[in-house]
């Protein structure tokens, strides 16, 4: 992302209702596949629920290119939606699909609350706390405690 000129501000058109819902089919894998384009994911990538939970997360297993992946499905926090965007023009991106969860995968290791993606969601809580309007009472009580 470090190279390339900064274009004119782009519009992002978020549509929730008409777009295809990809929930359960969004995977974050611990590798980068150097190819951009469609692939027959559902024919080859067959996650299986193990029936075991780790850290209270239901454990799934799958194999990709011979490696064991262990993962779990994380619902997006309440009030948030995921969007898959596609470029319409230089100035415009459109919603091509939406999702309500992400299944993320570790190579070899079982998922845990310490994983990056799991922790990335902390940011949402933090951002909410930062951006929530502060009421006069809250302000008063916090200055009192100082």
């Amino acid at each position: 992302m470090e190279k390339g000129g900064r274009g004119a501000p782009a519009n992002i058109v978020l549509k929730k209702d008409e777009a295809e819902d990809l929930s359960g089919r969004i995977h974050q894998v611990p590798c980068c596949v150097k190819q951009d384009g469609p692939a027959s994911v559902s024919d080859y990538f067959k996650p299986k629920l193990t029936g075991v939970g780790v850290d209270g997360l239901p454990l799934q297993q799958a194999h990709f290119r011979g490696r064991l992946l262990q993962g779990t499905s994380l619902p997006l926090p309440h009030g948030f939606s995921g969007f898959v965007l596609s470029k319409k023009s230089d100035e415009c991106w459109e919603t091509s699909a939406t999702f309500r969860d992400v299944t993320y995968w570790n190579h070899e290791f079982a998922p845990s609350h310490n994983d990056d993606l799991f922790r990335a969601f902390h940011c949402l809580t933090l951002s909410q706390a930062l951006h929530n309007p502060v009421t006069a009472e809250e302000l008063a009580s916090s200055s009192f405690s100082l």
Partner: peptide, 8 residues
């Protein structure tokens, strides 16, 4: 085949 780079 497509090249795959692993974090691990």
């Amino acid at each position: 085949g497509a090249e795959v780079l692993w974090e691990s």
